[in-house]
């Protein structure tokens, strides 16, 4: 029975199904079978890093066996990596020159960073024995700073992939510098809605709510806590308060309440956008400042270490 006949007859064995599923899974994971994809790029780059690290480890163990300073070799490797990692900032600031795209530089930055972490483990063997931070003031600070930069790099990689997705799902796309202006517009719109009320009962009910809660909520900037961990608690409380007012209002005034609730939701969305966009920018700032500090300290450490090695 040919394959085609068997397929038509639905007689495909479980082994073949499993093989096909496994093959499909491998293709999906590695991006194989396609000319180019992010997935394939990721797999190839990770492979290159693993092979490079294996070679570095082999070289270091060879030098150690030959009673040579393997630390000097790994140190030079690390400082070269640091220079390469910091160069991305230079490229970012010079867009006029044909120095390659930032996308390529970012990929090089990510995988060089990954390689540097591996080399750092080879360079500071104490870490493999359970000590995360090296001993001594300079070395301890240096290793602490290295871990901070590495951790912030990993966080940045995850954040730069996850946060855009979250920002897109919020709906409206707003630029960070325009958010204060939009906030003001929302605050003004809510005030206009309240001013437009004609029913005395509604003026007293909604007016009081506006005075006591809404105006405070709309005129204030989001708290530090919200910026660090944005939640919908405030929005839910304000909206619940607005819903509560409905029982004291007539139908027309309930509609005003509904419009105000929509504006409150919009304001919360803006705050959410603000918190996430700000987080990305603060992260870039912290990561780059710490990287420069790390490079400076690494150079000092290198000079001192070389003096010791020479002596």
């Amino acid at each position: 029975m040919s394959v085609v006949e068997r397929r038509h007859g639905g007689a495909i064995s479980t082994t073949q199904r499993c093989k096909a599923a496994a093959s499909g899974l491998v293709n999906r994971v590695t991006g194989a079978g396609r000319a180019y994809s992010f997935r394939r790029r990721r797999v190839v780059a990770c492979g290159v890093v693993v092979v490079s690290l294996a070679l570095a480890a082999l070289l270091a163990s060879g030098m150690h066996a030959a009673l040579l300073h393997s630390g000097v070799m790994t140190g030079w490797m690390l400082i070269s990596c640091l220079f390469l990692l910091v160069l991305i900032g230079v490229r970012r600031r010079i867009p006029v020159l044909p120095l390659g795209t930032m996308s390529v530089w970012t990929q090089v930055h990510i995988y060089t960073g990954l390689f540097a972490v591996g080399v750092f483990l080879l360079h500071v063997p104490a870490i493999l024995h359970g000590r995360l931070i090296a001993t001594g003031y300079l070395e301890g600070t240096l290793s602490g700073l290295f871990w901070f930069v590495s951790a912030s790099g990993v966080y940045g990689l995850i954040a730069s992939r996850r946060i855009p997705w979250r920002l897109t799902n919020v709906g409206e796309q707003v630029r960070l510098d325009q958010i204060p202006w939009y906030r003001e517009q929302i605050s003004r719109s809510v005030s206009d809605e309240v001013q437009s009320l004609t029913n005395p009962a509604a003026i007293s009910v909604i007016g009081e709510f506006h005075r006591r809660y809404l105006s405070r909520y709309l005129s204030s900037k989001p708290s530090w806590l919200y910026l660090i961990y944005p939640t919908s608690v405030r929005r839910r409380r304000v909206l619940a308060g607005l819903v509560e007012l409905n029982r004291y209002l007539e139908e027309e005034d309930c509609r005003v309440c509904g419009r105000i609730a929509a504006l409150v939701r919009r304001r919360d969305d803006l705050d959410y956008q603000y918190a996430l966009q700000l987080r990305l920018r603060v992260w870039v700032m912290l990561h780059s400042a710490a990287s420069v500090a790390l490079l400076v300290m690494a150079i000092i450490h290198g000079i001192l270490a070389m003096r010791f090695v020479e002596s």
Binding site: R92, P95, L97, P98, G100, T101, M102, W105
Partner: peptide
Amino acid sequence: GLPSGPACAAACPHDA
């Protein structure tokens, strides 16, 4: 006029 081509596309670090 630039030797680098469109700066906007080259400046995007995330292939966006």
